[in-house]
């Protein structure tokens, strides 16, 4: 496959579309949360206004170079995950930059933003940032283990580390999806998904009432704008990845939006129903339930393959 400059334009377009899907889903999610609390809640386009406002603030202050780079790393993590996931299966132009073995790279990128943010927020110097970071890294690490186990299981099942090939093998109807062929593994993946989405019950990292918003305590104006942009892209990128590996991928934007919305709603509905875990609870929960379940699923997958 040669290099085609037009692919860059299509990737940017793809990124733009996923950004807007993310922004709208963020708004709708807040709306759903409000409705559960019997409120009307924000307008569904409020995230756009907030974003414009934050980018348009007249003053900002910095705490050093890493403070600058933190949000940039975070956004790089989000965009990186998205650009290496084939968004639309079979599309010549919306397949992004996926290649053989990309699952390893994507798993790395998922963690990349968190680490960058940790360094950046650390330089902010606020004690609440430091508390938020230590909680965040501990929890993400705990959730990452079942996540990696789930991806590993999928890789074993499809005998490939390429997301595109995994999607290819799931084509032809719902009976070929990993969800149906390997429900246990999908269950583990969905549990890990909850842990990485920063939603209740796993949102102690941000905990606005306790440690004012955690790592981004010191972030404001443009910095916060970049983080908000990433809040739209990163969860969507992760959801698209899950859709590809466990839910049969998508062959056009309509299917993608529907599937992404439904998968995302899983974390939202769990979030509005269950209250927040403390960080020690959530880590223990992942090790106690998600990890053993993951190991069982992994063993089952290996047997299934034979």
């Amino acid at each position: 496959m040669g290099f085609e400059p037009i692919k860059i334009l299509y990737s940017l377009l793809s990124l733009f579309i996923i950004f807007n899907i993310g922004m709208l889903i963020n708004g709708i999610t807040r709306k759903i949360g409000a409705r559960v609390g019997r409120r009307h809640g924000i307008r569904f386009y409020q995230p756009y206004i907030d974003l414009v406002k934050n980018y348009a603030l007249r003053s900002n202050i910095t705490h050093g170079i890493m403070f600058y780079l933190g949000p940039v790393f975070r956004l790089t993590g989000g965009i990186g995950v998205y650009l290496f996931v084939p968004a639309i299966y079979g599309s010549e132009y919306f397949g992004n930059f996926s290649f053989a073995g990309d699952l390893v790279l994507i798993t790395y990128f998922i963690f990349f933003g968190t680490l960058g943010m940790a360094l950046g927020a650390g330089e902010g110097g606020h004690p609440y940032s430091a508390i938020g970071i230590s909680r965040g890294l501990a929890q993400v690490t705990a959730a990452e283990i079942p996540l990696v186990i789930a991806f590993l299981g999928a890789a074993i099942q499809y005998q490939s580390l390429s997301v595109t090939e995994m999607v290819a093998l799931q084509q032809g109807g719902i009976q070929n999806w990993t969800l149906v062929t390997n429900p246990l593994l999908t269950a583990v993946a969905l549990i890990a998904y909850l842990g990485t989405m920063m939603r209740s019950p796993f949102d102690i990292v941000l905990a606005p009432q306790e440690i004012p918003i955690g790592p981004p305590t010191e972030y404001h104006s443009t910095f916060l704008g970049v983080l908000q942009t990433n809040r739209a892209i990163f969860p969507m990128a992760k959801t698209v990845l899950f859709m590809n590996v466990f839910f049969g991928g998508a062959t056009n934007w309509g299917v993608l939006i529907l599937k992404v919305f439904l998968i995302y709603m899983w974390s939202v509905f769990v979030g509005v129903v269950f209250p927040r875990f403390r960080v020690d609870h959530s880590i223990r929960w992942f090790y106690k339930y998600a990890l053993p379940l993951g190991l069982v699923a992994l063993a089952a997958t290996s047997l299934l393959i034979k």
Partner: peptide, 22 residues
């Protein structure tokens, strides 16, 4: 913030830190 008055409807939101508030 409660269902009765719900200022979120008007684009009014609470932030926990001075840095992010206007």
């Amino acid at each position: 913030m409660t269902p009765r008055f719900d200022a979120y409807r008007y684009g009014i939101q609470w932030r926990p830190t001075p840095r992010q508030s206007n």
